[in-house]
Simulated scan of single mutants.
Amino acid sequence: MANESTRLSARDWALAALKAIADGGLAAVAVEPLARTLGVTKGSFYAHYRNRDELIEAALDEWVRGHGEGALTEFAAIADPARRLRELLATVVQSVRPLAPSVHLSLLGDRNDPRVRDAIRQVNRARLALLADTYEQLGLPPDRAAGRARIAYAAILGLLHLAQTEEESPNSAALSDEVAAVFLPI
């Protein structure tokens, strides 16, 4: 096991921590259980991180990178705002899985932790900015675009919340059409 630290990267640990956060919040991030899940000893952890707090910070950074501004560049590059919004909403609807844990929703339980609050704000800010810009490009004045963005984003988070307790998946194509009908200006 001398080379186990070379088999697992710091990112592997951060991704495992994110899965633990999705399943049980920050309290679920513990080195020994994560090492068991990853099939390594604690020594692998200490090859990458000094302590649990560093791992949590790395996991939150990974989540922000994967769900914030950087993750939205593909959608921001779509020139047609109606197509951009339709594809963004369809992607969200298709990613919602019944009983699937959500990092975002789990983090809300730890929102008093300043690191968590900052990560959530970064992701929320990036998502709301993209939505608001899209609505402005669709012709809404800035104040209405910002309001529509907040409502659309709240609906997205609501879909994630519902999926946490549902056992069956809704028809994602039909739901995508409904979401587009509600949130795309005619």
Rank of each mutant, 00 (worst) to 15 (best):
R144S: 12
D118Q: 15
R150K: 11
R125F: 13
D133I: 04
T134H: 06
A129H: 09
R127D: 04
Q137R: 14
A149C: 03
R117E: 06
A145E: 10
R127W: 02
R148N: 07
R121K: 11
L138V: 10
P141Y: 10
A146L: 10
L128W: 04
V123F: 01
R125P: 02
A145W: 01
R121N: 09
D143V: 14
G139A: 14
Q122A: 14
G139N: 14
D133F: 06
A145F: 07
G147C: 08
A129M: 05
I120Q: 05
I120V: 15
R150Q: 12
A145S: 11
I120F: 00
Y135I: 11
A146N: 08
R150T: 09
A145I: 10
E136V: 11
Y135L: 09
L131C: 05
R121M: 07
Q137K: 13
I120L: 15
G139T: 14
Y135R: 03
L128Q: 05
R127A: 04
A145Y: 02
R148D: 03
D133L: 10
G147S: 14
R144P: 02
A132K: 04
G147A: 14
N124F: 05
L138N: 06
R115Y: 07
R127I: 02
T134A: 08
R125C: 07
E136Y: 07
A145N: 08
R127Q: 14
L131N: 01
L131M: 11
V116Q: 00
Q137N: 11
A146R: 14
Q137A: 15
L140E: 13
I120H: 01
R117A: 10
R115G: 05
A132N: 04
Q122R: 05
D143R: 14
P142H: 11
R121D: 09
A126I: 01
L130R: 04
R117C: 03
A129G: 09
D118M: 14
A146G: 12
L130T: 00
A126L: 01
L128D: 00
E136L: 06
A149I: 01
R144Q: 14
Y135W: 13
R144I: 07
A129I: 03
R117T: 03
D133Q: 15
A132F: 00
L131S: 03
L140N: 08
A146M: 07
N124M: 07
R115I: 02
D143I: 12
Q122M: 08
G147L: 13
L130G: 05
R121Y: 10
P142Y: 10
